[in-house]
Amino acid sequence: MTFVHQDVWHWQIAAYLFLGGLGGSTFAISAILHLFEECDKKTLSIAVLSSLGFLALGTIFLLADMLQPMKAMYALTNPNSWIFWGVIFINFYFLAAIVYLIPLLEMWPNLLPVIKKIPANILELLEKFNRLAALVGSAAGFLIAIYTGLLISAAPAISFWNTPALPLLFVISGFSTGAAYLLWLTSFSSNAMSDQVMDKLEQLDAALIVSELVVLGAYFNFAFFLPTGARESAEFLFHSPVFIVGFFIAGLLIPLAIESYGIFFTKNSKKSLSLIKTASILVLIGGFLLRLYVLKAGLYQYPW
């Protein structure tokens, strides 16, 4: 039996997985906040716009890593393939996100002339389906986040990946990065509601980090269970300082500490914005490192 590090997918794909999770969850969280809570429309529109940007960038990373990106449309051939579904989800997402975004943009006076150029009946339709678009986009965003995990879990010989825990981990981590990003974004808002939103996001992120820790615990426990490639992978990660320090300590524990401190010991008014910003950025960096290192730790278990 031989364990061999996969040498197929590198940082570009890690970036794709990261941006996919981030973009999908950013949209889903913001749309849901919008649907069920009060929030600042301007910040919301920036959030939605950036989620589009994240996914577009992620897709560029994916295409750049391909041998024949010009033929990417062929990817819509085989529904047994996760990439097929990835493409579907992303396209649904783009459609829904744009439908959802355009009416939001009316918040920006500078953009009004442009928006006014859109025929009124279409704009009306967009307004009408705004909530639906929010729901569809959120669902698609959620699916994208989970798809990033499913994509790499379809590797029978990479036992570290070949587990349902991985999509779960990726979706939780994805939403945590989304929440962190929104937290960071909101911290710039001077809007009255933003403090409340920040509280919510802070709680959400903390909760997600705690769940992520639980899932990680289970995941590594499973990995160490049998003398397989998964154990080798887990050991590899335990021996990677960047993973331990960058992801686990700086990307999970420190933000959790900061956020817990914020939740339990400070009142809204007294919150330190710079601490919050630091925590958010750490979560984002951690999210990328998680994907990068999970890819790096992908060990084929060959029977020879």
Binding site: V8, W9, M66, L67, Y74, A75, T77, I83, A154
Partner: peptide, 22 residues
């Protein structure tokens, strides 16, 4: 028809594939 996305390479448990690059 191959776009070179490598999903097959990741999926193959027997290291049977490689990229014929440009």
């Amino acid at each position: 028809r191959c776009i070179g996305c490598y999903a097959c390479c990741i999926a193959c448990p027997y290291d049977a594939r490689y990229p014929y690059e440009s």
